[in-house]
Amino acid sequence: MTADPSSRGGAVVTGAGRGLGRQIAALLVERGHHVLVTDIDGAAARASAEELGPRASALALDVRDHAQVVAARDAVVERAGRLDVWVNNAGVLITGPAWEQDEATRRLMLEVNALGTINGTVAAIGAMRATGGHVVNIVSLAGLSAVPGEAVYAASKHAAIGFSLSTIADLRAAGVKDVDISCICPDGIWTPMLHDKLHDPGSALSFSGRLLMPEEVVEAVRRVLDAPRLVTAVPAWRGVVARVGDALPRFSLAAMPLVVAQGRRTQRKLRDRGGPRG
């Protein structure tokens, strides 16, 4: 059921110029929010906002810059009256062993994926403490376990999870009951981020399960907006596997070559046929 637009305030989605972020922005428009579509690519953000209609506007945003993030928050509050939802979706994935990545590459992933999530969450809380609201952080299964070939990426996602859970604990300790934080931890999603990794053996683990369609992750976002949940793995069974692997690291590392091999077989199949099955 589509929400009554008059009952909704503003929402912000980062990294919404294409892919999953754009679809999350569409969900929030459908639910009656005025949505600020942000992306480091301003042209992509504007194109997405135009497609989404009059309840969407656009802003070029580098989530690593706290001042820019605060300005985005203030812009949506000025337009919509309050901030109801902030979705930290912007992310960067560059694969390879950490020792083969230069400092700039490592810093980029840590700053976009971890610092960007921190900046967005802190800015959102600044507006939401007075009116209530919900921060949704799009993380990854890489935030729950070891990911060979994606060590720095995994570190950034572990940081996002740790920050989110610690911050909600701080909010509750401060007596703030009507601001929620939910983390969505999806397996590999068939978006442009993975389209570009079909020939990359370092990203094999992202292909080791059933590739998700963006709509499946959007549905998970819909569910947590209706019923906040601290951590949601998509699919749930992969979250269980990741948690077991995290609890039993020796077992996980021993099994990892088999999982990586499965991912590389999937990459080859996808290259051959040009995409995942239905």
Rank of each mutant, 00 (worst) to 15 (best):
P5E: 12
G10H: 02
V12W: 03
V12T: 06
A16W: 03
R18L: 15
G19Y: 02
V37P: 00
D39K: 00
D41T: 02
S48K: 03
A49H: 03
P54N: 13
S57P: 06
D65W: 04
Q68F: 07
V69M: 07
V69R: 02
L83H: 04
L83P: 01
D84S: 09
V85C: 12
N89E: 11
L93D: 04
I94P: 01
E100A: 13
R106L: 14
L108G: 07
L108E: 09
E111H: 08
N113Y: 06
A123W: 02
A123Q: 04
I125K: 03
A127W: 02
A127E: 04
G132N: 12
H134C: 14
H134G: 09
V139L: 10
A142M: 07
G143E: 00
L144E: 00
S145H: 05
V147L: 08
G149N: 04
G149W: 00
E150V: 04
K157F: 05
A159F: 08
A159D: 08
F163G: 05
K177N: 15
V179K: 05
G188R: 00
G188Y: 00
G188H: 00
H195N: 10
D196W: 06
L198F: 04
H199G: 11
D200C: 00
E215F: 15
E216V: 11
V217N: 01
V221T: 07
V224W: 10
L225P: 00
D226M: 14
P228M: 14
P228G: 11
W237A: 10
G239H: 08
G239I: 12
A242I: 12
F251W: 13
L253K: 13
A254V: 09
A254R: 14
L258E: 15
V260F: 03
R268E: 07
R271C: 05
G274S: 13
P276M: 10
P276Q: 15
